[in-house]
Design a binder for these strands. Structure first.
Lengths: 191, 191
DNA sequence: ATTTTTAGTTACACATGTGTCACTTTGGAT
DNA sequence: ATCCAAAGTGACACATGTGTAACTAAAAAT
């Protein structure tokens, strides 16, 4: 029943991603989003009560996809290979880090709906970090990683490094190759 | 002659820094700034034609200070010590990276005044990178750094890593210690 | 064909931010 | 004491964004 939709949720989230990365939370407007989708603003408000709900739903979807991808690392692989595949995945989802930063800025204004979605997000957040922490722990006990490095700093380091702005337009593969090298071995040569 | 000022340029830039880091370009408003300084918005407009001019002036000032600090690295020091002092300085000015990112978002709207200030900024930007590139080059020729690592990626890596969010509230010195370790040697132990 | 259901639009009221201008305040110079 | 120059304020016009409600459009069910 009913008329055909002019835009899919998929399109909507795709545009949302593009815009939120470009402009940040405060700069993001439903107006821009509507223009990109060739619909009126009100059409979007048919599906989301407000901007914040839309953004949170988008983030949850983004998180779901990332989570699915991250949870499929074979447990048996040797440490260095696991690290490699994981870094590759983090590299593919490099925007996630930026997106999750935005989540902290969204005001809930005491609305239970929004508060619930935020809680959901931070739960998934922890879920996402679990395999990473686990891997770091493995690395430490197998002697690959210095014991005294704090886990959260280490993870922060990885996420932060992964999103080095590729301003010079290097091709993605090369960028990943060098980034990985830097994360694993730092800037100094292993003498 | 004339009445005493209620706020100094120093205070103004201090508040500007705080706000721009918190809220980003789009979120930053003259209203917030005025409130923080206990003056009316109009008082601020006495000194700056508009928001963008204020922000650019702030950035130029910030850049000047950083530049002064960076240019005072003794040339004779051995490589590793130079790296250490430089990292320390970058760590102290870790906000600069974020601030410079904002500069790219400021619209000049064809105003020659703003365009001029922007050009000034990007000149200083290059000036700032010069000693860094120089150091990296030295490191490469002295065999400390892998030759094939692209310079800009390497610098991006350093700036990016320096601004790992210290969410767990580690004390600054410790945070710097571990961050340095990660930048220099990566996450893997040197076997 | 006409009714129902869902999608979308136009127009509105409201809120917040910008930049300006006529005005007041205040302190030193005369 | 009064004049004047710099500092600050309140109020306004304008622009942009939010969220809503009454409406129209179109596709499927009857």
């Amino acid at each position: 029943m009913g008329r055909d939709r002019k835009f899919s949720t998929f399109d909507l989230f795709l545009c949302t991603k593009k815009l939120i990365i470009q402009t940040g939370y405060e700069g993001f407007t439903i107006g821009q989003l509507a223009t990109q989708l060739n619909v009126s603003r009100a059409a979007i408000y048919k599906y989301y009560q407000n901007k914040d709900e839309l953004l949170l739903d988008f983030m949850i979807e983004e998180m779901k996809n990332t989570l699915k991808s991250f949870s499929s690392i074979p447990e048996e692989l040797p440490f260095l290979e696991k690290v490699n595949t994981l870094l590759q995945k983090i590299f593919m989802y490099k925007d996630l880090h930026l997106i999750l930063g935005i989540q902290e800025v969204i005001p809930t204004k005491g609305a239970p709906l929004l508060e619930g979605k935020k809680r959901h997000l931070s739960l998934m957040h922890r879920e996402l970090y679990k395999p990473l922490i686990h891997l770091v722990q493995q690395g430490k006990s197998e002697g690959y990683i210095e014991m005294d490095l704090p886990n959260d700093l280490l993870l922060g380091f990885i996420f932060q490094s992964i999103s080095i702005p590729n301003h010079s337009g290097m091709d993605t593969e090369k960028a990943f190759f060098y980034t990985k090298k830097l994360i694993l071995n730092g800037i100094l040569k292993n003498k």
